[in-house]
Design a binder for these strands. Structure first.
Length: 421
RNA sequence: GCCGGGUUGGGGUAGGGGAUAUCCUUGGGGACUGUGGAUCCCCGGACCCGGGUUCAAUUCCCGGACCCGGCCCCA
C-alpha cells in the first residue's frame, strides 16, 4: 500500500462537495464586497519569505533547490505573493481589492486544526488607509462565517497595535517588540513568568501586574478606552482611539455585534502596523478561525513603494473543526439529481436517450446501467446520492410520460421529458 | 525538533504466546422479472513496519512509520 504523506489530507466526494460549497460562499461574499480573484504559483523563491520573516522560517517550509540551483519553496503563506503581484503592476488603479484561496504548506507537526497542507482564503485591500477599509475587511470575514451558518458561534477579538505600543512605552518598556510577543503568549504562560518577562524589559512590577490584569479579558471598546486612559496614562492616543471606536461603530451598526476589544490579540511578531484581529469560536475550543490586520510597511520591503494594506486569512482546517462541531458540515444545496431506470430492454435504450437530452438542459442525471433488478436499481439510486428516479418501462413508452419518483418523500408522478428538471 | 496516547478487513469492533482471528457495516455476485428503497442465498476483504525474546509472536520487549492531542513556532 502506498501511504500519503504525513499531515496531508485526501478529500472524498462527500467532504469535497461540502468544501467546494464553502469556497463558493467565500467567493460570493468576496465578490459582493468588491474583491476580485487572483492566483499565483505554489512555488516561489525562498528569498521572498526570508525578506519578510527572516531565516527561522526555513525550518518550517517545504523548500529545496531546483535543477537550476535556485532555492525555492512551496508557499507557506499568501501575502508575499500577493504583494509581489501588486508591486509588479504599477499601473493598477487603487484601491485594489483582491482575494484568493490558495493551498499553503508548512513543515511542522500536525495537530488539531493544523495540517501540513491547507487551503486558506485571503482577502486584502491595498492603497486604502481608511478605517472603512479596516471595517470592510472584518466585515467580509464575518459575512462569510455568517453565510456558513456560524452567526452567533464566533467572536472577533480586535486590538490596535499602536495603542498597545503607547501603553507599553508609558509603563517603561525598553523592548516593545519583545513585550508584544510576551502578550501574544499571555494565555499560554504562567502569570509569574509573564510578569518576569515584562519586568526584564524595563517595566516596573506594579505596572506589569496592572498590564496583566488589563490584558486578561475582553472589553467593549468604551470600557477599554476608559481603562487605558485611567490606568496607563498612554500619552496622545486620541486619533488611534477615535479610529478604532469608529471602526467598531461601523461594524456594530451594520449587524456585527460579536466584536470585542481584546488587548492580548497582537498577532505575534508579524508585520502588522495598526488594527489586528482574530476570529474565535465562542467556546474557545479551537484555534483562531481567521486572523489579520493592517500592514502598511510590507510593500516597501518588496519594492520601496509604501502601499497601505489591510487583509485577513481564513484557513479551511479550523473552519472545518468548528462546522463539524456545530453540525454544519453538510451539503445545503438542494439540487435534483435523477437516476434513470429502464425496466426492460426498450426502456433501457430510452433511459440513455433521456439522459443525454436532460443533460443538454444541464439537468444532472445518470442512466442506471446495472441488471434488470428494480429493487437493486432503487437501492443504487439512494446510495449513490440521487434525489429522484425516473422509471421507464412499457407503460411509459406507450404514453410518452415517465414516472418520476422523489426518493425523499416517495411521491411519484407522471411527467413528460420537457417538464423534468 | 520535543512530549503523551493510539494502530486488528474500506469503516466500526471482539479477542488473544499455538486453532480456520469475532461481530456489525460497506463492497461484489445471485434469487425475487412494474412500486419491491426490502428480504433471502453466496463470495471477497485485516492483526502498521523492522528487529528481539520464544519451540512458537498478531499478542510480550525495543525501535520506526503513521494517526489523535499537546509543546515550540506561527505565516
Amino acid at each position: 500500500m502506498i501511504e500519503k504523506l504525513k499531515g496531508f489530507r485526501d478529500f472524498y466526494p462527500e467532504d469535497m462537495e461540502i468544501r467546494e460549497e464553502i469556497f463558493s460562499k467565500m467567493r460570493k461574499k468576496a465578490k459582493v464586497f468588491g474583491f476580485r480573484p487572483i492566483d499565483y504559483p505554489s512555488l516561489e523563491l525562498l528569498e521572498m519569505f526570508r525578506i519578510k520573516s527572516g531565516d527561522e522560517i526555513l525550518s518550517q517550509t517545504y523548500s529545496f533547490k531546483d535543477r537550476g540551483d535556485r532555492e525555492i519553496t512551496l508557499i507557506p503563506e499568501a501575502t508575499p505573493s500577493t504583494v509581489r503581484m501588486l508591486v509588479t503592476r504599477k499601473d493598477l488603479p487603487r484601491p485594489v481589492r483582491w482575494y484568493n484561496i490558495p493551498k499553503l504548506w508548512r513543515y511542522e507537526e500536525p495537530q488539531s486544526g493544523r495540517t501540513r497542507e491547507h487551503m486558506q482564503m485571503n482577502a486584502d485591500i491595498f492603497g486604502d488607509d481608511s478605517l472603512e477599509a479596516d471595517a470592510d475587511t472584518i466585515g467580509l470575514a464575518c459575512s462569510i462565517l455568517d453565510s456558513l451558518g456560524l452567526r452567533g458561534s464566533y467572536e472577533v477579538r480586535v486590538n490596535e497595535r499602536g495603542i498597545m505600543e503607547h501603553i507599553l512605552k508609558s509603563i517603561g518598556s525598553k523592548d516593545i517588540k519583545n513585550d508584544l510577543a510576551t502578550i501574544d503568549r499571555f494565555h499560554k504562560m504562567k502569570r509569574e513568568d509573564i510578569v518576569e518577562r515584562l519586568v526584564s524589559s524595563g517595566i516596573e512590577e506594579q505596572k506589569a501586574i496592572l498590564l496583566c490584569e488589563f490584558v486578561e479579558k475582553s472589553y467593549t471598546i468604551e470600557e477599554a478606552e476608559q481603562i487605558i486612559v485611567q490606568k496607563f496614562n498612554p500619552g496622545n492616543i486620541t486619533d488611534l482611539m477615535g479610529r478604532i471606536k469608529e471602526t467598531f461603530r461601523i461594524l456594530k451598526e451594520n449587524g456585527f455585534e460579536n466584536i470585542v476589544y481584546n488587548p492580548s490579540t497582537v498577532r505575534g511578531l508579524a508585520y502588522y502596523t495598526g488594527i489586528v484581529f482574530e476570529g474565535f469560536d465562542r467556546e474557545g475550543k479551537f484555534r483562531s478561525i481567521f486572523g489579520g490586520g493592517r500592514y502598511n510597511n510590507l510593500s516597501a520591503l518588496f519594492s520601496g513603494m509604501e502601499i497601505p494594506a489591510v487583509g485577513f486569512g481564513m484557513g479551511d482546517a479550523v473552519l472545518e473543526n468548528l462546522m463539524r462541531e456545530k453540525g454544519l458540515w453538510k451539503n445545503t444545496e438542494n439540487e435534483r439529481r435523477y437516476y434513470i431506470i429502464g425496466l426492460d430492454e426498450k426502456g433501457r435504450e430510452e433511459s440513455v436517450r433521456v439522459a443525454f437530452r436532460l443533460r443538454q438542459r444541464d439537468v444532472q442525471c445518470v442512466a442506471h446501467s446495472g441488471g434488470k433488478n428494480l429493487s437493486n436499481a432503487l437501492k443504487n439510486a439512494t446510495k449513490l446520492n440521487f434525489t429522484h428516479t425516473i422509471l421507464i418501462g412499457k407503460n411509459e413508452m406507450d404514453n410518452g410520460k415517465y414516472t418520476v419518483r422523489d426518493l425523499a418523500s416517495g411521491d411519484q408522478k407522471s411527467m413528460e421529458m420537457d417538464q423534468i428538471g
